[in-house]
Design a protein around this nucleic acid. Structure first.
Lengths: 163, 163
DNA sequence: GTGTTATAGATGCAATTGCATGTAATTGTC
DNA sequence: GACAATTACATGCAATTGCATCTATAACAC
């Protein structure tokens, strides 16, 4: 059972990695040029902002944005220092924190979105018809089998996308 | 001209970034577990190995693997220290180097490929039919308009994929 | 209850990356 | 040819990441 891939699969692999990282960089570069922070900041803020009270368990957010645990801790350090979120010790579970988005945080995210949206259009939407976008999203979705609903002891890092 | 994206495009964007980085990490993680170096090493070695004499201009390789110039210099430092490549000052153009792959380098790349291939199958090929792989590769290809054939003053970084 | 194991989060340190800038050689201009 | 602009590559330093490990609390087994 060699488990070898066809040329087409290899091409899909190569295009996936190249396109994914290139599109990400181009979008982030556009935002940076406009004075915005990295997309990882946006992702965290967005998860919090759309949560019921603008608050979530730290581990909840971490699981959603796919980042290494030790990097997440430090990302939160920066966000907290910039007064975008607050970490509050959880009263139910003494090990965990509850993250709250601040007004400053909400304002920052709101301010980023129009430029983020425009960048997505420029580097992705512009090149695809609606049907193509749907097909692409569907095929990409097949590649993420969620790895068993993640017991997420995540010791690896990643990049998440926000909407 | 708001340049806003539809929900489908936003979903495609989110899936693209998530899937791309996740697949990349999973593949690289598999290789690491098997004792192999990062994929960026593979990419450089592969570019050299498939070149006529196992040699190319440094800038040629850099342009193909999409990496920031200053990171590329350092990547080569590591490859050279590991005796996988050699940097030879170019006689035609005094500013540039010619990169040569060593026998050790060839052997390393050859040794990586079966495991790399298997990882691509595990994390990509396995989830797609041939036709789907073709469609996916095609759609992804539409997103990389090559940005004007790159005069490549590349001061940004990226991840390249090798085959 | 006590001891073991698992979970949430943090951190010291080395390696890598980003950013700004430097050096040397080449090309274009007049 | 002299000189400004460009190109190829390198590097100092700060910020970020990866890795191993630590602390503290909670969950489980008996």
């Amino acid at each position: 059972m060699p488990a070898t891939s066809s040329d087409l699969v290899q091409l899909a692999w190569a295009n996936l990695v190249r396109t994914g990282s290139t599109a990400f960089q181009r979008v982030e570069e556009d935002l940076k040029r406009l004075g915005h922070p990295p997309l990882s900041w946006y992702d965290v803020l967005w998860e919090l902002e759309r949560a019921p009270e603008g608050a979530l368990q730290q581990s909840e957010v971490q699981a959603r944005i796919l980042i290494a645990q030790y990097n997440f801790t430090r990302l939160l350090d920066r966000l907290e220092k910039a007064d975008l979120i607050r970490r509050v010790p959880c009263k139910i579970d003494g090990r965990s924190n509850v993250l709250h988005i601040t007004d400053t945080g909400r304002a920052l995210r709101r301010g980023m979105w129009p430029d983020y949206d425009a960048a997505i259009f420029e580097h992705v939407g512009r090149h695809l018809q609606e049907g193509e976008a749907e097909t692409l999203a569907g095929l990409l979705g097949k590649l993420l089998p969620d790895r068993g609903k993640l017991p997420l002891k995540t010791r690896q890092s990643s990049r998440g996308a926000g909407t």
